[in-house]
Design a binder for these strands. Sequence first.
DNA 1: TGATCCTATTGACCTATATCAAAGCATTAC
DNA 2: GTAATGCTTTGATATAGGTCAATAGGATCA
Lengths: 220, 220
Amino acid sequence: MPVGLNSTDLDRLDEVVNIRRKVKRGDLLFRNGEAFTSLYAIKTGFFKTCVTTEDGREQVTGFQMAGEIMGLDGIVSDHHSCNAIALEDALVCVLPFSHLETLSRDFPALQHHMHKIMSREIVREHGVMLLLGNMRAEERLAAFLLNLVQRLHARGFSQSELVLRMTREEIGSYLGMKLETVSRTFSKFSEDGIIDVKQRDVRILDTNALTQLYNPQPCN
Amino acid sequence: MPVGLNSTDLDRLDEVVNIRRKVKRGDLLFRNGEAFTSLYAIKTGFFKTCVTTEDGREQVTGFQMAGEIMGLDGIVSDHHSCNAIALEDALVCVLPFSHLETLSRDFPALQHHMHKIMSREIVREHGVMLLLGNMRAEERLAAFLLNLVQRLHARGFSQSELVLRMTREEIGSYLGMKLETVSRTFSKFSEDGIIDVKQRDVRILDTNALTQLYNPQPCN
DNA sequence: TGATCCTATTGACCTATATCAAAGCATTAC
DNA sequence: GTAATGCTTTGATATAGGTCAATAGGATCA
């Protein structure tokens, strides 16, 4: 966070960050159509965000963990356009958006930080589009696992072990495949000795193999 | 644009908006890996943006027309992470990003506008993810055509006629399908009397049918 | 401590879309 | 104005992943 702040400045920054909200597993932090007032920074817990169609189809648009920001979808129309659901009991920091805008006019570092967060989300979604548009089931799941462990590792967890917070169906929704295909692909990775799966506990045995699945070398 | 500005203010705003750049059909406005300095507002012309993998696969992430902003991907890492290619001769307005950040600290309306533009892009990409993850070929193409005419109509063009600026392959890349499938789906729509296609000229005969393809009612 | 429910696995079969291939059109370049 | 090139269409065939179905494993709740 920005340096060279006096105590008044710090108080102002503090004010925007000290509203907390608990969300129980299965509960919505915000829902599609709801008025947008705040962004949310995850302190603890794990979320999914998803969009839905009128005929009941659901697309998971992301999985979010500690330190990540949710709610950016609401800025454009003053209403949220997706649902944010806790996949485990969670604690979030409520960031009233009008405060953020006011503050970021006085703190260029905060302003730039917000721009980066939004840009990062755009770039992440480009990656998902590439995944959904171009990749096969194995590549998608490999990419998904690598992305998850990488983010968990950045938070001090293991590079090779993880506990999935979501169901096969939710993984499938995110990756554009059916839950049976997710399950079969897990089984295949397991048979190939790339991972160990037991329900939601996954241990990555061969990161290289996963990386190559995801990023195959040109075959010429 | 914000009201109540004096002439000094207007000069400052003007300064950020008066750099123009011509881009010829087929040329890149910016490319993956290039240092990020500016956003670009399209004055005239039509672009595609796309990401690529090391093994040469390409995913079109969007098609942009007059009034739309490109380059948001570059903010997070100070480098662009996609290519922007003109699909016809184009003129863009170069918006140096550091100027924009400075200005938006003094003009809350500009600041909020920038936030909305980024949020809009995030929401648009959610829609694409839904498309790629959940929809069948016909639904994808219907959604694509409806989206294009809607945007063109907002710019004063016809609600029912459009000229495609991109190839079948580029449409396919955007929609996660092969060019042959795009072509076949166009032909099917044509046989069903929903559209008239002749190469890149499309006339929509039955908007309702397209809408229902895209947004089928729940069948219960 | 069962009983129930949700989640995951696995098998058999099917279908939408990909792939391969061959013309046919249009546009561009010379 | 003609050749060349790139796009589009269409057909035949293949296949990855979807669908349907049955079972089993864990978690949750009374």
